[in-house]
Design a protein around this nucleic acid. Structure first.
Length: 839
RNA sequence: GGGGCGAUGGUGGAAUUGGUAGACACGCUAGGUUUAGGUCCUAGUCUCGCGAGAGGUGAAGGUUCAAGUCCUUUUCGCCCUACCA
């Protein structure tokens, strides 16, 4: 055998050559078409995992392919560097969060480089760098000045033992993840961005994102949660508890107003708070409901206050109820038990009237009244005064008309999407650039004072002392000189990831976040790739941010990401020993379908699950790169499983990828030494395969491109075996092979490029041109009888029916069937099928 | 409860969008080369049948010359979301 391909030598060699030649460095070129490939940037947790490898491999295939297609490809990388794990490391390992983060970044950068990704490393950024976050402090100030940022009271999770605020994901079953203490709700004054201003546009523009997965659009649409209904103003009957005269509720079912038999408000509603002060029973109730799970038990408190029905001379009771949410609508509803299950459950419990007002057209419960199940179908109005007989959809409009006429209500569109709370009571985040003056004024930090840097922590004492913090916190107002203290909260880290894709345009620019003309050239991102877990928050915040920055005149685009692809997870078998402990896969030996650990004890095979430290089913990318090479890892990532589905990592799969990498090399060595003059390369199978590889890359069907490449290589070997291709023809075929494998296995490709004696880099080569749809003129035409396959005949693509039929009749299998039968009909689609219908 | 996705050999998955079901790969079986082994090569591998042939894409119907693909009903599985008035 010839020299084996040695990835340990070849991979670092080409990585160095690419870097030395700076071939992935890009600049704006107005005469060249751009293509922006972006993968979601990683959090620098310590080392890369297989999810990263998959993510960045997918992106790199696209980036390298588009480059070879002649695009000016923008493919940057950075670090989502603020966040909780750094603070945890500070506590557990006594490491300074900044040091910890930068150390991780430099380690992970090397890991990524060893994968051979075609990244323009000159544009690398880290969001924890003041040169990055000073600009988002500016964005915040601009938002504040334009009414897009404001402050209000809001609840946080408070851990009373650790005396700290917890993120939602740090609360497990109502307890702090570290202390195990019951988490309390605490009210703090916090900053919000007015995402709600953009609800309609965020929803509307989803329809323009035709290169997004439908699934993600549906999720965002549900999250925005638009509903059409009405606000109704009810009048209160004079009572001892409330001075207010009116109560407004939101409903999507104004048609059921005549079925309203109670009104309910949330315990957090202003009225409820007022009632509590005067009514001890209400106060007691308010305490009780804090420990009741409202999902399971619906409870209410009858306030003994009554409300006038807007169209009837009728008074209905006001309840405080635990199932009414303050966050949605107005925190107040009218209950129509006949047509809402929750209202019915509530009414049955408190003996409230049930009045049916909609009669479904095909009712199963016709005239039988309502027992335990509310009627949700549409139908005709009954028991409803001026609405009687109307279709209930029409009745909705009629009620709104009447409300508006009488000045006691109006049509109302409502959204579930709420404003984005951005305050985090954390150290390792971007400081919010606000001062609180001693006279109570809120003063935005002046632009020229930016960035507001994080207080510096001493090297050996990552937990800041009170003095250190005070020194940072205490300052003075730049205008009046009065004493002032700094805002100590930091931004939610989604703030950083909402604009990093813009910053890549000018990552070192100091006086501005970016240049508009560069953003106008590079943006929007043509292909964004990442996990489905960011389907809502990150992608929605980024869309909001882009629109807000547009309105603040920073950018001209409406949407940041033109194409989106969401990849599946990387999974692996799990193993457990007799004691029920998880066992790492690299300690497992398989023998005849049984698995054994280091001590030769049999272990149980568990489910295939997402790789995670807790289940110990992770495979370290670095050891794979070391043993098999980056190209093998990349090839395996792209083989078999479609990228949107989960990929099961298996040793045999990796081994077989490794074999194929070597097979390509052997084939090329063989081709180099091949000599023959016969040339029977008349079909253009290779051309068809190149077309297929290309189209499958465009469609993100990389597993199919991989299959095409297998075929391509097998085909070359067949030709060489039979000596039916000339040396000259083979040269062209092998050169094209080298190019089409490049996006998948770039190091191997470069090594072959060099072996074949080509100049420069394969990475800079042009993608082979294929004549579109120039497939073979000869086809194997299927012959059917009554839709069942009877045989194949060789035919030209545009052969006449008579000729085809004549040939077909010579098939013995057909003859047998046709005997003594009458041909009723013949369906012939040239190049596709001949179907003979017989009786 | 609401929404979405999916079900094809022993396995991962193909099927040019209504036109040869199972491409390509893994695994397995048999044989061969070399070897200590892995590697490598050849043949086979949906089911039944010696065969001609017949059946076959979770299940049951339907539309069609023709259905994995379209329609109806149904079973199972996964994911998201959840008192949204």
């Amino acid at each position: 055998m010839s020299d084996r391909y040695n990835h340990k030598v070849a991979e670092p060699k080409w990585q160095k050559k690419w870097r030395d030649a700076n071939i992935f460095k890009v600049e704006k070129k107005d005469n060249k078409k751009k293509y922006y490939v972006l993968e979601m940037f990683p959090y620098p947790s310590g080392k890369i995992h297989m999810g990263h490898v998959r993510n960045y491999t997918l992106g790199d295939v696209v980036a390298r392919y588009k480059k070879m297609m002649g695009f000016n490809v923008f493919h940057p990388m950075g670090w989502d560097a603020f966040g909780l794990p750094a603070e945890n490391a500070a506590m557990t390992e006594k490491k300074n969060p900044a040091d910890w983060t930068y150390t991780n970044i430099s380690y992970m950068r090397n890991q990524l480089k060893s994968m051979g990704f075609s990244i323009d490393w000159d544009r690398e950024l880290a969001t924890c760098h003041p040169g990055y976050y000073k600009h988002e402090q500016l964005f915040f100030l601009e938002m504040y000045k334009n009414g897009l940022a404001y402050k209000k009271m809001s609840e946080v999770n408070w851990d009373p033992v650790d005396k700290t605020v917890l993120a939602n994901e740090q609360v497990i079953d109502g307890r702090g993840w570290r202390s195990g203490a019951l988490v309390e709700k605490k009210n703090l004054s916090q900053w919000f961005l007015k995402t709600s201003n953009y609800s309609e546009e965020l929803l509307d523009d989803l329809s323009s994102l035709d290169m997004w997965p439908n699934k993600v659009k549906v999720m965002q649409s549900n999250w925005i949660g638009k509903s059409e209904g009405a606000e109704i103003v009810f009048s209160l009957v004079k009572n001892d508890f409330l001075d207010d005269k009116h109560l407004t509720v939101y409903t999507t079912r104004p048609d059921t107003i005549f079925g309203a038999t109670f009104i309910a408000i949330s315990a957090n509603h202003d009225f409820a708070k007022k009632i509590l002060k005067k009514d001890n029973n209400a106060k007691k109730f308010n305490k009780e409901i804090k420990v009741i799970d409202s999902e399971k038990t619906k409870v209410g408190y009858n306030t003994n206050i009554f409300i006038k029905h807007p169209f009837l001379d009728k008074k209905i009771p006001l309840f405080i109820a635990n199932f009414v949410l303050m966050d949605y609508g107005l925190g107040a509803i009218f209950g129509c038990p006949a047509h809402d299950q929750r209202d019915l459950d509530f009414a049955l419990k408190y003996n409230l009237e049930v009045i049916q007002v909609v009669e479904p057209i095909k009712s199963k419960q016709h005239s039988n009244g309502i027992k335990n199940t509310a009627i949700l179908e549409s139908g005709l109005m009954i028991n409803s005064g001026f609405l009687d007989g109307m279709d209930n959809e029409k009745a909705k409009k009629e009620v709104v008309k009447r409300l508006e006429k009488e000045g006691i209500g109006n049509k109302k569109i409502n959204y579930k999407l709420r404003d984005w709370g951005i305050s985090r009571q954390r150290y390792w985040g971007c400081p919010i650039p606000i001062l609180y003056r001693e006279d109570g004024s809120v003063i935005p930090v002046e632009e020229k004072e930016l960035p507001v840097l994080l207080p510096v922590l001493s090297q050996n004492n990552p937990s800041p002392t009170k003095e250190e913090v005070d020194e940072w916190k205490n300052t003075s107002c730049p205008i009046t000189g009065m004493k002032a203290i700094r805002e100590t909260d930091t931004f939610d880290t989604f703030f950083e990831s909402s604009w990093y894709f813009l910053r890549y345009c000018n990552p070192r620019l100091n006086n501005k976040p970016f240049l508009k003309e560069d953003v106008n050239y590079w943006l929007p991102v043509d292909q964004y790739i990442g996990g489905i877990e960011h389907a809502i928050l990150h992608l929605l915040y980024s869309r909001f941010f882009t629109k807000a920055l547009r309105d603040l005149k920073f950018v001209d685009i409406n949407e940041p990401f033109r194409g989106l692809f969401t990849q599946g997870m990387v999974t692996h078998k799990t193993f457990k020993d007799k004691m029920g402990n998880w066992v790492e896969p690299n300690k497992i030996v398989e023998s005849k379908g049984n698995y054994f650990d280091n001590n030769n004890e049999q272990v149980l095979v568990g489910k295939i699950e997402k790789m995670s430290k807790s289940k110990k089913n992770v495979v370290n990318p670095s050891s794979i790169i070391e043993n098999y090479g980056a190209d093998t890892a990349r090839w395996f990532m792209l083989s078999d499983s479609p990228p949107e589905r989960d990929l099961e990592w298996t040793d045999v799969g990796v081994a077989s990828s490794y074999k194929f990498i070597n097979k390509i090399w052997e084939t090329c060595i063989r081709a180099k030494n091949y000599k023959a003059s016969d040339d029977l390369l008349k079909t253009n199978k290779f051309n068809a395969l190149i077309q297929s590889v290309s189209e499958n890359i465009e469609k993100f069907h990389f597993n199919k491109s991989v299959a095409n490449i297998y075929e391509y290589v097998n085909e070359i070997n067949k030709f060489m075996d039979k000596k039916t291709i000339s040396g000259d023809s083979l040269k062209g075929v092998v050169k094209n092979l080298c190019i089409i494998i490049h996006p998948f296995t770039p190091h191997l490709s470069e090594e072959i490029w060099e072996l074949l004696g080509h100049k420069g880099f394969c990475a800079n080569a042009n993608w082979p041109e294929f004549k579109k749809n120039d497939v073979v003129n000869k086809v194997n035409l299927p012959i059917q009888v009554n839709g069942k396959l009877k045989g194949l005949i060789s035919s030209k693509k545009n052969e006449k029916e008579e000729v085809v039929l004549e040939k077909a009749k010579k098939l013995p299998s057909l003859n047998r069937v046709l005997k003594d039968k009458i041909i009723v009909k013949i369906i012939y689609i040239p190049g596709k099928i001949l179907n003979i219908v017989i009786k």
